[in-house]
């Protein structure tokens, strides 16, 4: 799958999930419709989005998505039409949440970020794991082989639902875990 989209340059490190969507907006019971709250907790966040109204790829600095485990951060990004976040590193929980919601968490070398952030748009081939920049350079990245499937096809829950029999037979064999 190839994503071609405009860049939202988030020139901050350690963008935590409270900045992506603040806690006081976590009062719902569904994962839809949260896009309107995206980056409301980030200083200057709303202005930045307004300046890049049709962006679909976030480019940012290290440790994106740290802090709270709230999947609402990935839901808000997806709901607002973001399909990828490109950063030198991610916090673990956000990275898992992003994979499970069709938002590709793409890790590239920190040295590439300035150029990617300056690019108005990028072409990202998720199958081939490459980013093509406008000056015709190609940057490669690696997705988790299993989670790539969840990213492209969804189905994390179905994957687990299909494991239930195997889990039950493991349990009856191991018999050791706590009640």
């Amino acid at each position: 799958m190839v994503l071609e989209g405009n860049v939202l340059p988030v020139d901050r490190a350690n963008v935590d999930t409270d900045q992506v969507i603040p806690a006081f907006l976590l009062t719902g019971i569904t994962s839809v419709g949260l896009g309107v709250h995206l980056f409301k907790g980030m200083p200057g966040g709303l202005d930045l989005l307004a300046a890049h109204p049709d962006a679909s790829i976030v480019v940012t600095r290290e440790n994106f998505g740290c802090g709270s485990s709230r999947e609402h951060a990935a839901w808000a990004l997806a709901d607002r039409g973001f399909r990828a976040v490109v950063a030198p590193s991610f916090a673990r929980i956000f990275q898992e949440n992003a994979y499970n919601n069709g938002v590709a968490p793409i890790v590239v070398d920190a040295g590439e970020i300035d150029a990617l952030m300056a690019a108005p748009s990028l072409k990202i081939d998720l199958e081939a794991e490459t980013i093509a920049t406008s000056d015709a350079r190609v940057i490669t990245f690696a997705l988790d082989p299993l989670r790539k499937r969840f990213l492209l096809e969804g189905g994390y829950l179905d994957f687990l639902a299909n494991k239930r029999d195997a889990v039950r037979s493991w349990l009856s064999r191991s018999g050791s875990t706590v009640e």
């Binding site: 485990s69 709230r70 999947e71 949440n97 499970n100 994390y156």
Partner: peptide, 14 residues
């Protein structure tokens, strides 16, 4: 973990 991962564990134990 996030909600999806928790949901998966409620569903499958894993």
């Amino acid at each position: 973990i996030g909600t999806t991962v928790q949901t998966g564990a409620m569903l499958s134990g894993c």
